[in-house]
Measured scan of single mutants.
Amino acid sequence: GAPPLPPYSAGGREVTMKKGDILTLLNSTNKDWWKVEVNDRQGFVPAAYVKKLDSGTGKELVLALYDYQEK
């Protein structure tokens, strides 16, 4: 199953993602919540729920390892 959710501390809205989604990583300075862009929406997802990909394009991409439903 998915890892436990860290307390929400990102101070911005969250976004929903599905397992297998490829998201653009915008900011990973917060260790628990990373800012991503998905379907032209920006928001935060739990860092433990995604994995960085080596895209080779200069853009940082992450793979959704679990479904996440915004609150």
Rank of each mutant, 00 (worst) to 15 (best):
R13C: 13
K35W: 15
V36Q: 00
E60A: 14
S55Q: 11
P46I: 02
I22K: 04
G56I: 14
E70F: 10
A47Q: 04
V45N: 00
V45C: 04
T16I: 06
N27R: 05
P3T: 05
A10N: 07
F44I: 05
G43N: 02
N30S: 10
V36A: 02
D40L: 09
R13A: 15
G11P: 15
Y49A: 04
W33P: 00
D67A: 05
N30A: 07
P4M: 08
T29K: 10
N39S: 12
Y49R: 04
L61E: 08
S9V: 09
E60C: 11
Y8E: 08
V38F: 14
L61P: 02
G56R: 08
W33S: 01
Q69T: 15
K71Y: 15
D21I: 04
V62A: 14
M17H: 01
L65I: 10
M17E: 00
S9W: 10
P4E: 09
N27V: 07
E14D: 13
V15N: 04
K35H: 13
V38A: 14
Q42P: 06
D54L: 11
K71A: 13
L63T: 06
V50N: 00
D32I: 08
P46T: 01
M17L: 06
G11D: 14
A48Q: 09
K31D: 13
S55L: 12
P4F: 06
D40F: 11
E37N: 05
K51M: 14
V36Y: 01
G11N: 13
D32Y: 15
D32R: 06
K18L: 07
K59R: 13
S55D: 12
K31R: 12
R13E: 13
W34Y: 06
T29H: 10
V36T: 01
L61R: 08
R41K: 10
W34T: 02
K71T: 15
A47C: 05
K19P: 03
R13K: 14
K59N: 10
V36E: 01
W33V: 01
A2W: 06
T24A: 11
D67F: 03
K51W: 07
G11S: 12
A48H: 07
G58I: 09
Q42N: 07
G56D: 15
G12C: 10
S9K: 13
G20H: 04
G58T: 13
G12S: 07
S28N: 07
P4G: 07
Q69I: 13
T57N: 15
P4L: 08
K19M: 08
P6M: 02
Y66A: 04
W34P: 00
L26Y: 03
S55A: 12
V62L: 10
L53E: 03
P7S: 11
T57M: 13
D21N: 06
V15M: 15
T29P: 03
V45Q: 00
K35P: 01
V36F: 01
G12E: 09
T29G: 09
L61N: 05
Y68P: 00
W34I: 04
N27M: 07
T24S: 10
G12R: 07
V50L: 13
V45Y: 00
K52E: 06
A10Q: 08
P3L: 06
D32P: 01
L61K: 09
T29V: 08
T24D: 05
P4R: 07
P3M: 06
Y49D: 01
Q42W: 11
D32C: 09
V15I: 14
Y68I: 03
D32N: 07
L63V: 15
G56E: 14
K31P: 14
G11C: 14
Q42G: 05
N39E: 15
R41V: 15
Y8S: 13
K31G: 10
V62H: 03
K71S: 14
S28V: 06
L65E: 04
T29C: 09
M17V: 07
P6H: 02
P3Q: 04
G43Q: 02
W34F: 06
V15F: 12
E60Q: 15
L23I: 06
D21K: 03
L26I: 14
A48M: 10
V50H: 00
G20K: 02
P7I: 08
Y8C: 12
G1T: 14
V62E: 00
L25W: 01
A2E: 08
G1I: 06
E14V: 14
I22V: 11
Q42Y: 07
P46V: 02
K35T: 08
E37F: 06
V15K: 02
N39M: 13
K18Y: 13
K59V: 14
G43M: 06
L65S: 02
V38W: 07
E70L: 10
N30T: 04
Y68T: 02
R13S: 11
Y68C: 02
L5W: 06
P7R: 08
Y66Q: 04
L65R: 03
L26K: 04
W33C: 03
E14Y: 15
A47D: 01
P7W: 05
L61T: 10
I22F: 05
E14R: 14
K51C: 11
V62I: 06
K19H: 05
N39F: 09
E70H: 12
K31N: 11
D67H: 05
E37L: 08
S28K: 07
E14G: 13
L63M: 14
K18A: 07
T24W: 13
T57E: 15
G58N: 11
V62Q: 00
G43D: 01
P6N: 03
V36M: 01
Y66E: 04
Y66D: 03
K19I: 05
L61Y: 12
G11K: 08
P6I: 02
P4D: 09
G20W: 04
K51P: 01
S9I: 10
Q42M: 10
T57Y: 12
N39I: 12
G58V: 09
K35F: 15
V38L: 15
A10K: 06
R13V: 13
V36P: 00
S9M: 14
Y68W: 07
Y8Q: 11
A2D: 07
N39Y: 13
I22T: 05
D40T: 10
E60F: 10
F44Q: 02
V62N: 01
E70K: 13
L5F: 06
K52S: 07
P3H: 05
S9R: 14
W34L: 04
Y66T: 03
E37C: 09
L63N: 02
Y68R: 02
G11L: 07
L61M: 11
W34R: 01
K51Q: 13
N39A: 13
F44T: 02
Q42C: 08
L5Q: 06
E14N: 13
A47W: 02
K19E: 05
P6A: 02
E70T: 13
V38Y: 12
Y66R: 05
P4Y: 05
A47R: 08
G43S: 03
D32V: 08
D54I: 12
Y66P: 00
P6G: 03
S55H: 11
L25N: 01
A47T: 04
G58E: 11
K31Q: 13
F44N: 03
S28D: 15
P7F: 06
N30V: 04
E60D: 13
G11I: 14
P6L: 02
P46D: 01
K19C: 05
K51T: 12
Y68E: 00
K51S: 09
V62W: 05
E70R: 09
R41M: 15
K31H: 12
D32G: 08
P3K: 05
A2M: 12
P3D: 04
L53D: 02
P7V: 06
K51N: 05
G43L: 05
L23N: 01
G43I: 06
P6R: 01
P6C: 04
P3A: 05
S28R: 09
G11F: 04
E37S: 10
V36D: 00
L23S: 02
G58C: 07
